[in-house]
Amino acid sequence: MTATLEVRNLRTHFFTRAGVVKAVDDVSFSIAGGQVLGLVGESGSGKSVTGFSVMGLVDPPGHVVEGAILYQGRDITRLSERDMRALRGNRIAMIFQDPMMTLNPVLRIDTQMIEAVQAHAKVSRAQARSRARDALGQVGIPSPDERLAAYPHQFSGGMRQRVAIAIALLHHPDLLIADEPTTALDVTIQAQILSEVQKLAVTYGTALIWITHDLSVIAGLADEIAVMYAGRIVETGSAARVLDTPLHPYTQGLIGSVPSRNRRGEKLRQIPGMTPSLLRLPPGCAFRTRCPHADAACEQEPEPSQPVPGQTTRCFHPLIAVSA
């Protein structure tokens, strides 16, 4: 069975005045229909850019410089803009980070939903409108008929994100990229939205990539987890394995910094140091300056390895011995 999405050795770079920013540098992962992939990493690690690369929405001065993005076996980096547009919002959809900014402030909700329906389905305005209304109902917006005629600023942040989700799910996409859609919302709403989106994804057989910087958000829901650091994926594997027996020191650090996983009375373990600037990455392992296990070997570039079946990592000293 071919995966819904398979990303192979993707590199997306930004050619800025200050230098080349390798926001995504040799990233590979895959995801099948109905599955949930958690893409985790600190701010600036390249999660959003990975998502935009899949959508074909990387703006100058950036572009995909290398690699393949296979959607149902077809490399979509080679598609014409017109063919890509036919997929966007239709087979592959995305929800953005900041719900306050994703909806156009001067257009009514119905305008923004109807145009999304009509972009991919030859239906009348009335039909498009009724589909939009149903979609709003599905994401739990009360009295959708009235709400359609409203403007975005009349909605709360949580409601706006539901509208964005409704729009993304209008055409029951095969792949949904959710880029930290709940980070800006408060905790109770976060959990609600996450489980609702997951339910819908299961209903439609949609493959779901859930981007977050907070492991605890997806701990219970993700099938697979990919951990990103400085433009690279440093560890992948099933959620259970990655969370219980992390191989990469960075993953371990992330898990250590999740409050619920700390034993009582124990101090919260923060990863020391700062995310390095992507413009001036040290040669070798990018995590070297913060890693407790770093040694001379780490001045070389670590390649992905599979010390345990089904779990890959980019590290010279994976933590098998420690966790075993």
Partner: peptide, 20 residues
Amino acid sequence: DFVKFARAKGLAPARVIFVH
């Protein structure tokens, strides 16, 4: 973001520019 989101919906460039 809302311009990018409009593009993410698969709208034609003309609609993105002239409407959004």
